[in-house]
Amino acid sequence: MSDSDTLSEALQEKARAELGEKVEWRERDIQALRDLVKADLELYCPHEDDAFLLMFLRARKFDYDSAAKLIHRYFEVRVEYEDFYKGFRPSMAKSLYEKGLYVRLPRIKETDPQPVLTRVGNWDVETHTMEEVLRGNIIQIEKLIRIKENQVTGVVLLMDLNGITWSHAKQANPFLAKRIMSIIQHAMPCRVKGMHYINVPHFFDYVFGIAKQFMTEKLRNRIHTHVTPETLKDHFDLEMLPDFLGGKYDIEPIAKEWAQEMLDSEQDFVAREKYGIRKVDAVSSNQGNSADAAGGITGTFKKLNVD
């Protein structure tokens, strides 16, 4: 595999400098990870898909063992949090996307992290729970990390809290916070380069305090809070921001475009549902058969203890 012709020279240089990625070593690196994944008898995944493996290599800076463990965790968490991942597709959050809750913002420089905005104030607590809103965000991040440019640059998450009330905030709880932080930090091939909370209300410390205890020190150091959008200019080019955050453009056309792009990617998510974790005893009794006649996983899922 070689995507050097689709990654620009600037991104190739960024990948080399920050991730230790070298185009001339790519086949060797992918094969090394493939061998580790194939040796994991509990795991049924698309190990013949070079792009899939490369995504995890980039997320772990080409450390083979760490990338292999991340792949295992990526599928393992779908068993551990089975209720969260049931029907894990864009259609699950269709109404949230159509309300413009999530928006992929324009990237000014190709080597900058991909900015993504969540307009939390667009969340109607009468129709959706906090878990549903967070799941919709995880689904969009899942789509974003399948784009090779984003694997190199990482993503930066902006949360506009304008309009949220205590009715929104009181749904936060340690169980949900631990689950989301566990997924983002330890079960997705995602490099979060920053998290910016904008228009923070007076009760923000309550919500953030719950989540903060489950963040790694690395992520905590990448958190920024903004009482007003005014301080965003210290971090971002104003051309990247919509008018209500100090920029100049109307966000609604972009929001509609991103919502449609998310919904159009439904089958990409469906295709990955056949992969997962299986019991070793089921594997050993079905050597050579990675899937049943229907294309699903042979054997039973391994159930894990949830803290």
Rank of each mutant, 00 (worst) to 15 (best):
A177D: 04
R135Y: 12
T231M: 03
D65L: 14
Y64E: 07
D292W: 04
R220Q: 02
P201Q: 09
L41V: 11
D29H: 02
F56S: 05
N305T: 15
E257H: 08
I164E: 02
D83P: 02
L36F: 05
K143E: 01
A282E: 10
G295S: 02
P106T: 05
D160I: 13
Q151S: 14
H224I: 06
D234H: 12
G121E: 05
P113E: 01
A259C: 10
E217A: 06
N221K: 14
K38F: 03
D237R: 04
E257D: 09
E27R: 12
T165R: 09
E18I: 02
M240D: 03
D160V: 11
K248N: 09
K86E: 02
D234M: 10
L7Q: 09
C45P: 00
D124Q: 05
R16F: 00
N173Y: 10
H47I: 05
S95H: 14
Y74H: 15
Q213W: 10
I108W: 12
H224M: 10
M215A: 01
L176G: 10
L304V: 07
N150S: 12
D112R: 01
Y102Q: 10
A282H: 11
D5V: 12
N162V: 07
V192P: 03
E261R: 06
V280F: 14
Q267F: 13
E98V: 11
F88N: 08
R119S: 07
D234A: 14
L117K: 09
I210C: 00
L176H: 10
Q267G: 10
I184W: 09
E18D: 13
V37F: 08
D264S: 10
R78D: 05
V120Q: 13
D65S: 13
S265L: 08
K303R: 15
K38S: 07
F208T: 03
K279Y: 04
P115I: 12
V125I: 11
S2D: 15
Q12W: 10
P174C: 04
L43C: 01
